[in-house]
Write a protein that binds this DNA or RNA. Structure first.
Lengths: 190, 190
DNA sequence: TATATACTTGAGTGATCACTCAAGAAAGGG
DNA sequence: CCCTTTCTTGAGTGATCACTCAAGTATATA
């Protein structure tokens, strides 16, 4: 008997994610969200409860999409191939709202205020690091890289390289091509 | 005949820098600054004019201190030695308000809003990158590294590595020691 | 078509934002 | 001592913040 919402919830979350990703937490006002989502305050709060609650939904979707992209590469190219292709995949994704990682931007902005979303973002970063580690380990099993390396250590360095590349890519006039190549080649030398 | 201010202006800028560095632009309110600087609103605006004007002063001092630290290392250890020691110098500086680079945090937060301070931060980053390039070039002149490398390219990658390392170091429970070692060793292999 | 059940609307809430300014306090030179 | 100049004070400005809620509207069942 009830009336259905006139919007697609997942679509709203995706659009909100892009605004939060680009502008950050404090940099995005309810007015911005109402405009982007085409929702009046009442509908917004009925649908999501609070700005924080929506932000968390967008963080989770961001992490899910990132993990899925890596998984797809692993299916296509195997563990080492996925790790080599992932940096280019990130930088050349024109649909992305920003080059820098949303999880990093969230952590940098909110952890000094002990905001729970900062821990949430960091947990997602840990999950990604663990996935990288598993791929390095699988690459060793496949004898694609030497077996003397510590996968956890390789993963930590790989993620650090990725984050640096993504920050640099955010800078106006910066060319990431050579950094992408060098990350790819340094993996081939393992 | 006039009365002297009861504060040391440089000391205020340094204290404000630490708050801005840690909490960001939007994350730092005038109330925070008044408390940190022990200044009432009237004195604050008489001394600095606006929140933005003070932020710019703190950015400039941040960049100046960073450049001076690198120069001191170059005097002690020469160009390659300075580039190798700089990452550890940054991470192990207990007096720093944060691990992540203030210029990066500023750019990430303010560039989506086309705030002039974002360009200002990026200009400082370019200056640092140019200084790195000059050090790589000097290291080639000293035959400390091979002369087939492009110093500009090395500098771009080096800065990207630094930024990634500093972001990672901001994460709770993260150990940067191995990343520091690997950056140092990869420079020795050039 | 009638009714129940949601969804939609937008004016309005108190709190906080960066910032102003007029009045008072303190430190120089005479 | 006095007077001038500057610094210090803090209540107060309009704007914007995240958020609320009562009234109005649309839809699916009966």
């Amino acid at each position: 008997m009830p009336r259905k919402p006139s919007y697609d919830r997942d679509d709203l979350i995706r659009r909100a994610r892009d605004v939060f990703w680009k502008q950050g937490w404090a940099g995005t006002s309810l007015k911005d969200l109402e405009k982007t989502l085409n929702l009046k305050p009442g509908s917004f709060y009925a649908a999501f409860g609070s700005k924080d609650a929506l932000y968390q939904l967008t963080l989770d979707q961001y992490a899910k999409d990132g993990a899925a992209a890596l998984e797809a590469l692993a299916q296509d190219r195997g563990p080492l191939g996925a790790l080599q292709a992932y940096p280019r995949h990130i930088i050349e994704n024109d649909a992305a709202a920003a080059r820098a990682c949303m999880l990093v931007k969230t952590m940098l902005e909110l952890s000094p205020h002990d905001h729970p979303l900062a821990d949430h973002a960091n947990a997602h970063l840990n999950t990604m690091e663990n996935r990288f580690s598993a791929l390095f380990s699988a690459a060793q099993d496949n004898q694609e890289i030497g077996d003397t390396h510590d996968p956890a250590r390789l993963a930590r360095r790989y993620q650090s390289d990725l984050l640096g590349m993504r920050i640099s890519a955010e800078r106006p006039g910066h060319d990431s091509a050579s950094t992408i190549d060098e990350i790819e080649q340094s993996l081939a030398r393992l």
